[in-house]
Structure formats: C-alpha cells, structure tokens
Amino acid sequence: MTTKYYFVSTLAVLLLFGCAQPPSERQAVTVKGSDTMVLLGQRWAEIYMKDHPNATIQVTGGGSGTGIAALINGSTQICQASRPMKAEEKASVKQQRNADAVEIPVALDALAVYLNKQNPLQHLSMEQVGRIFRGEVKNWKEIGGPDATIVLYGRENSSGTYVFFKEHVLANADFAQNYQGLPGTAAVTNAVAKDVNGIGYGGIGYATEIKTIGISKDATGEPVAPSMENVYSNAYPLSRQLFWYTAGTPTGAAKDLVDWVLGPDGQKIVSDVGYYPLKNSKQTP
C-alpha cells in the first residue's frame, strides 16, 4: 500500500512543479528554413539571446522548401525563405494553420555568381550565365576564357536559391545534366574555391575564398557588381529579398524577435554577416 501512496504523492509533486512553472517564463521561438539565411538567423539568435536572457531561439536550416513545409505543418513558428512563397504554399498555410501567411522581408541579398580566383573573367551577362548553367556553353573559351570545360556547381533542388536561380537566370529551363547539386552554400563556395574551372552561385554573405563577378542585364549592358548600392538601386539583376514567414501576425515572443530583427540592432547584424540591411531601416550603411 505504501508504494501506492508514494506513487500518488510523486505524481502530485510532479503536477505541482508542472503548474508552478508557467510556460510564458521561457520564451522559445523556433526558426527554420533557408540555408542561405541560416548563418544570419543563428547570429541573430545568438545576440538576441544575450540581450534577452529569458528567450530561447532555435535556428535550423534545411532549405527554404523545408522551412515552408515546417511552417505549413506547424513544426516551426518562423520560416526563413530566400524566395517568396508560392500561392499554393500560402493556401496550404491558410488551410492547415487557419491563419494567413505573413511575409516579412528581413534583409536584402545579391545572389552572386562565384568564380575561382584564378579565373580571368571579370563579368558575364545574364544570358551567358543562363547558357552556362543550361549546358549550352560547355567551354570557358566560348565566352572569352581559357580552353577548359566549365564545371557547374550549385544547390540541391530543395533550396530556395536553386528555385530563384532557375526562375531568374535559366528562365525556368532545366539545369544541365552535369550540374552538381551540393548540400549547402558553404559546400558550393568550397567547391568553386578548389576548382579552377568551377562556377557556382549563392548568397553574397557566403562569398569568401572565391570571387564574385559583375553581371550585366544583356550582352551590351554595363556589368554591375553585387554591391549594396547596386542592390538598393535594383541595378544588380539578381537582387532579392530574404523573408521571414509566420502563420498569422506574430505575437508574444515571436513578435518581440521580429521587431528586434527589423530594428537597428538586428539590421546591423545583417551587414555584419555580409548581407544588406533593408533600405528603409534606421541603420545607416
């Protein structure tokens, strides 16, 4: 009999403890999605948690598609995406979560084209980049480079960057057969850094160990570097917004985090990581 009482009292104690700690005390927010943004998200979380000891922010990558899927089935509160949500994805959020998908631009990015540092080319046109990745141009000498086969690197098809690049550069055509999809932008920069004949693409925030090139809108146009001014003036052809998505207007801990990210502290981190802060943010570049 004593064991039974012991069991009941333990249960009671556990219950009491459970009630005594209101869930609002620790503010946990999950952020999931774009691999392009995972560095940025983690830096935000780090600094935010330092300033707000009560908050717990969990940031994971996986790709924009993964994040959007997680937002739809409710396993994340905030989804990071390097591409805008498609209409059917928004519909799924509305249907599954019973709330509208709220789009919050949090930073700007220049989707850069990476070349190995030894590659003599300094700029390409949009059309040339498209033809390279569609497999129509196979040798560097066809576009004024050395006589060597072009090796294509990029992201896997779960990536928002992949989809953005496919839409804007390839005009929705398929990538070449020998296009190599790598897990993560860091893997792409690493591959291009080690391959003299490599070409890749990815967020400007990852552009280390390789060189980024100027892109012209057409064959005769002036090449435009992926710099902050050119992104602000929309002169760089592959300028894009980086988004956060929530199901319904964010409240509580998530709202505090969103406000902070959009504020001067959050936007300063954007430029620290290598992306460009929002144009209308108070932080002056």
């Binding site: 996986g62 089935n73 799924s92 779960s158």
Partner: peptide, 9 residues
C-alpha cells in the same frame, strides 16, 4: 536524403 526534406506531402 537531398529531396525528401523539401517535397510536399
């Protein structure tokens, strides 16, 4: 491994 994380159920 690369694609299952992203696909629509």
């Amino acid at each position: 491994a690369a694609e299952l994380g992203e696909v629509v159920f």
